[in-house]
Write a protein that binds this DNA or RNA. Structure first.
Length: 640
RNA sequence: GCCCCCGUAGCUCAAUUGGAUAGAGCAUCGGAUUUCUAAUCCGGUGGUUACAGGUUCAAGUCCUGUCGGGGGUACCA
């Protein structure tokens, strides 16, 4: 079975399929030959990266070995090194030494540089991608806002995390289905209809905006507190909708269309897309059959006849199937209790999962179950991922457990990818309380600030707008994705709009600087009457003299490039885009450190051979940044 | 009440999933620009990893308890 573990990690779905690191493999092989009594795979799992890079590139801790051999760890490490030195050298490994309890390995720097740069240059925009997904389907449910409301900053997390996972899994050759499970049904819809009928009679939807609808909703909700009759009115409207009253239905459809159009504009801005907008209403006619199936599988009993169909006619009578099962002996797990239909989960330390209210209506969990069945049937997913806030943990545990108890083997492939709440000055944000910050307002503000910041740069005014958009919005997305999912975040204008330090603009700026180096190079070549820029970057790998890259900083950049594919896999394995964001920050920092030391590292120089080697290195780092940002949904710009 | 998550520098976060001297950014103090874009770089200050026990060769990480913050907890989604 699958669980979002307590710390948010999830059982590995990759297993042995992860692509291998040739250096780690060589080291494991050598250690096994040198008498470490473990399988090569186990050794590889124990390999670590020393945090102090001068200690080596890979390390093997000898504590457990020492215990087995009844020696001190230092001694064991020394013995291993001695044994290693007696063996023929492994390709790619330059030297080994023991330091305390560790066996530290130094890779052949040139080999690492060559591996990294050639692989990266060869695959270019596909660097970091792989085939481990093998076309298996991953269904990702994310964003999923309610209709007739604009997106708030609270929707940002699900939207960008889901969007990033969509692209990350896609890059690993999973076939992704992005689903926006819109909240387009329920009494809240009745409230909106009631409010519109009351205060906007006769107005056409074309003249109104989602924001207006939201305001009406908030107003209605506020007045409801004083006037309870409004509540029944709202409920009546929803009943009308359920009974397919034509006028009400067309109003509802208008809300839906208006909302989707507005959502699509917002999603386009943050680089997110969906394959399906099948919201709650889509499952209305799938709930009863799903319940019936569940009841059959769990020998449960159905309570209360299904409500009448949309057109008032009786629902298609599919036989009076498994009606009441006599209750004898231990209570069936799925049963009637207090007039409601429940699945008893007390064995698992959870409150019961409610499938039908005592008034016959179905609930959140019922709909999710119907949706899961539908998705399994329709898409045959290998994994269903729900990117939903952490306050829904219990709901997902219950709902997955019910699927499991019903005997659906694929229940173990359902995963709740949870994330911390966005709070506003310590409080949960709520539309009703009016403490919402709208997503689009945040994006706009960020773009404005970017424009201000660009003012003192001499940039082509025509390009300015596009640049400001990419940088401003990128800052917001990156700020969200750089933190681990589990953390709650307090919304703070000052922090979200920060452009210095570990931020999106910092990473984008790295890209800009590298692009600028290439411009400089193109100018130089043109002055010499050499080829054009486009061909230039592509050809670099062919004749680059990589042995000219001898500085430590260059090796360190190559190491980061080399690790990128593993980083992407790790991000998928843990459903954690922040791993990619963190790696990009490392890349950016490594480059800036390198770049600022102009005396030693001027890329474009008179030494053409060295220039080309360095250009290739920079080009690869630029590729990693571009690919990483693209996975996060952030655009790159050539200047800023 | 019970269950779940979180607690690391003044602030926001990392820490290769149990490994070496706990690292970054912001803020603050001090430096670097005739240069391929300073949205940058270098250095200083800043830590009893909430607290108390325990397991282990090794604990920020695992276990128990306490404190603090957040969330959830049968007919909302």
């Amino acid at each position: 079975m699958t669980h979002t573990g307590s710390n948010g990690t999830i059982r590995p779905m990759f297993g042995q399929e992860t692509s291998t690191d040739r250096f780690a493999t060589a080291i494991a092989r050598a250690l096994a030959r040198a008498g470490v009594p473990l399988a090569e795979r186990e050794i590889m799992q124990q390999l670590a990266f020393p945090q102090e890079t001068s200690f080596g590139d890979y390390a093997f801790p000898c504590f457990s070995l020492a215990k087995a051999r009844r020696k001190s760890p230092d001694q064991a490490a020394a013995e291993v090194v001695a044994a290693l030195k007696a063996l023929p050298p492994e390709p790619g490994i330059a030297s080994v030494e023991s330091r305390g309890a560790y066996v530290n390995f130094f890779v052949d720097k040139l080999a690492m540089i060559r591996d990294a740069l050639l692989a990266c240059a060869k695959t270019g925009p596909k660097y970091g991608h792989s085939t481990i997904g093998n076309d298996r389907t991953v269904v990702i449910d994310y964003s999923s806002p309610n209709i007739a409301k604009p997106l708030s900053i609270g929707h940002l997390r699900s939207t960008v995390i889901g969007g990033a996972l969509y692209r990350i899994f896609g890059a690993l050759s999973y076939r992704c289905v992005g689903i926006n499970h819109l909240g387009d049904w329920g009494t809240q819809i009745g409230t909106v209809i009631a409010a519109v009928k009351k205060w906007m009679p006769g107005a056409s939807m074309a003249d109104s905006s989602v924001r207006q609808l939201a305001e009406l909703y908030a107003r209605y909700h506020a007045e409801m507190a004083a006037d309870p009759s409004l509540e029944t009115e709202a409920r009546d409207w929803f009943r009308k909708l359920e009974n397919a009253d034509p006028e009400t239905v067309s109003l509802w459809k208008a809300f839906l269309e208006l909302t989707i159009a507005s959502l699509k504009r917002a999603y386009e801005r943050v680089g997110v897309r969906f394959d399906s907008y099948a919201g709650e209403s889509f499952f209305n006619d799938k709930i009863e059959p799903a319940l019936k199936e569940l009841a059959q599988r769990m020998s449960g009993k159905l309570v209360a006849p299904p409500p009448p169909g949309k057109d008032g006619k009786a629902p298609p009578a599919k036989g009076d199937a498994p009606a009441a099962v006599p209750v004898t002996g231990p209570l069936p797990r799925m049963r009637e209790s207090e007039g409601a239909l429940i699945v008893d989960l007390s064995d698992f330390g959870m409150p019961p999962c409610l499938l039908r209210k005592s008034d016959g209506a179905t609930l959140y969990a019922t709909r999710d179950i119907a949706a899961a069945l539908y998705r399994q049937q329709t898409y045959g997913f290998a994994r269903a991922v729900y990117v939903v806030a952490a306050d829904q943990r219990l709901h997902f545990r219950q709902f997955f457990k019910v699927l499991e108890l019903a005997g659906y083997t694929w229940a173990s492939n359902c995963v709740h990818v949870d994330f911390g709440l966005i709070r506003f000055k310590g409080e949960k944000m709520a539309t009703r309380a009016g403490t919402v910050v709208l997503l689009e307002d945040v994006l706009d503000r960020s773009i404005e600030l970017t424009v201000e910041k660009m003012r003192d740069r001499r940039l082509d005014p025509e390009k300015q707008e596009a640049i400001a958009r990419a940088v401003g919005i990128g800052a917001i997305i990156f700020h969200d994705l750089k933190h681990k999912r589990v953390k709650d975040v307090d919304f703070d204008w000052e922090q979200i709009l920060r452009f210095d330090g570990e931020t999106g603009p910092y990473v984008q700026y790295t890209y800009v600087r590298i692009a600028s180096i290439f411009k400089k190079y193109a100018e130089m070549r043109n002055a010499q009457g050499a080829g054009t820029g486009a061909a230039m970057e592509a050809d670099l790998a062919d004749d680059a003299k990589l042995d000219r890259l001898t500085d430590l900083e260059e090796f360190q950049m190559a190491k980061l490039i080399h690790r990128f594919p593993a980083i992407v896999e790790q991000a998928a394995e843990k459903y954690e885009p922040s791993i990619i964001a963190g790696h990009l920050l490392d890349c950016a920092a490594a480059f800036h450190r390198y770049y600022r030391d102009v005396d030693r590292h001027k890329v474009v120089s008179d030494d053409l051979e060295l220039t080309k080697a360095r250009l290739l290195l920079c080009s690869c780092l630029k590729t990693v940044i571009a690919n990483g940002l693209e996975l996060l949904g952030i655009r790159t710009v050539e200047e800023m």
